[in-house]
Design a binder for these strands. Structure first.
Length: 424
DNA sequence: ATGCTCCTGCGAA
DNA sequence: CTAACGTTCGCAGGAGCAT
């Protein structure tokens, strides 16, 4: 019955600190792509009042005055560190669900109930010792309760020292805690639903737990009804050990600066289609259609706004960079309007299916198919060996004036020998 | 009624 | 120095259409 949710503390900041101990004890934030918003904060940065998702350009002056350190995001580093953490955590249970880059569920069914909290401490110490990343552990009878327990562990509720096991609490203790947590802190309750719940005078976790499930289902959704059940210890959301194949692949970015020419825009689209195709082949899937998306900057309200998108069906399901880029650019020609300052473009691969299931149609040219597959394999192998983007197609352009800003990125310590700093 | 596809809203990290 | 506000994914549910 019991489940643990293990969540890394300030994960991106913690990753940076492993390789740069001078960041320890300092206020540190990690910024999103384009150095746009804050996406991770050390506890010191939080106490300065820096909010999640805050636009960096509004904070920059204040932050420099206060000595807050800002780093661009380094996903190669975080992805690699995540794999190490997950591997260590997998040794603590036969059943693990990796839920996101920095958290996983562990099935603790059959473990001695009284010793779960100390088991949680062992998990924390082991991950800290082996990988250098601090984590918190929440334990409860459902995923929603485990998430909530983790929240309590992080906040230090009920004397929690990085671990919180709801199984140790009496009914009264649990009710007291739930009555002091705002309903918006529950997994699955976001901003909109919080507002609606408040208008019904459901303010705390305890209010939601004791709400009438039928009314919740009717007024909101099946999903929120399940949340209420889970808060009451009735499991509705299963542990998923094997991840199911993705249904879509999205690659989109905001530009470092606005783009007006069709050429620049088409180069960005070709580039993103290339990245999407690489993901697709890694998944061993094929796509049936590709959607192209272009947008102006919606934050610049006085500027003319335009958002265009178009789904382009592929003649046959494909994983070929050439075919996908060709289709994407065809779509772009249709939706492009001159006279706008574009801020973002992207592609979305849709109708994904395993490559193994598709069968050649009457119109396929099997020889061309084979050549295309071999070419893609060679390109992927070269880019794997020499570094991403070393070999690309001409349509992606060379100088990339739209490339994103990343002024404070740390080295790829764990995935690229060339980026390791010299030892003094 | 039933079952699709397409599209939007919402939440999460 | 400029200008400057993220990305990717799944699910639910309604609209529109065909059967």
């Amino acid at each position: 019955m019991p489940l643990a949710l293990v969540d890394c503390n300030n994960f991106y900041v913690s990753c940076e600190r492993v390789f740069n101990p001078k960041l320890e004890g300092r206020a540190v934030v990690v910024l999103s792509n384009n150095d746009g918003c804050v996406i991770a904060r050390s506890s010191e940065a939080k106490s300065f009042g820096v909010k999640m998702a805050a636009p960096w350009f509004k904070l920059e002056i204040f932050s420099k005055q206060q000595g807050i350190i800002a780093l661009s995001s380094n996903y190669a580093l975080y992805g690699d560190m995540s794999a190490r953490v997950m591997s260590t955590l997998s040794t603590f249970s036969p059943k693990q669900e990796i839920y996101s880059i920095d958290e996983c569920f562990l099935d603790l069914d059959g473990f001695a109930p009284q010793s779960l909290a100390s088991y949680g401490q062992t998990i924390r110490q082991t991950v800290k010792r082996n990988i250098g990343i601090p984590v918190c552990v929440g334990i409860g009878d459902t995923k929603t309760l485990a998430k909530l327990a983790n929240h309590c562990a992080k906040k230090g509720f009920a004397g929690a020292d990085g671990v919180c096991d709801f199984g140790l609490l009496s009914i009264d203790e649990r009710q007291t805690i739930f009555a002091n947590i705002p309903v918006g802190d529950v997994w699955g309750v976001g901003r909109r639903i919080t507002q609606q719940l408040l208008s019904m005078n459901i303010q705390t976790v305890e209010d939601l737990r004791t709400a009438n499930p039928d009314i919740i289902r009717k007024q909101f959704s099946i999903v929120l009804g399940r949340t209420v059940q889970e808060l009451n210890g009735i499991p509705c959301i299963d542990l998923e050990e094997t991840e199911s194949p993705r249904q879509q692949i999205m690659v989109s970015r905001s530009f470092g600066s606005s783009v007006t020419s069709f050429t620049d825009l088409s180069e960005s689209v070709a580039h993103y289609a290339t990245l999407a195709a690489e993901k697709l082949r890694r998944d061993k899937s094929v796509a049936c259609s590709i959607c192209v998306i272009i947008q102006t900057n919606s934050h610049q309200e006085h500027e003319p706004q335009y958002q265009g998108s178009l789904i382009v069906p592929l003649p046959q399901p494909s994983d070929s960079t050439m075919k996908l880029v060709e289709a994407a650019l065809k779509g772009l020609k249709t939706i492009y309007r001159s006279g706008f300052r574009y801020k973002k473009s992207g592609v979305l691969l849709m109708g994904l299916q395993p490559k193994s299931t598709i069968q050649p149609t009457l119109f396929d040219d099997p020889i061309e198919q084979d050549i295309s597959t071999s070419l893609m394999q060679v390109m992927d192998a070269i880019n794997q060996k020499m570094g991403a983007g070393k070999l690309s197609i001409a349509a992606s352009g060379i100088c990339k004036p739209w490339a994103m800003r990343r002024e404070g990125k740390s080295p790829n310590y764990t995935t690229d020998w060339k980026e390791l700093p010299e030892v003094a």
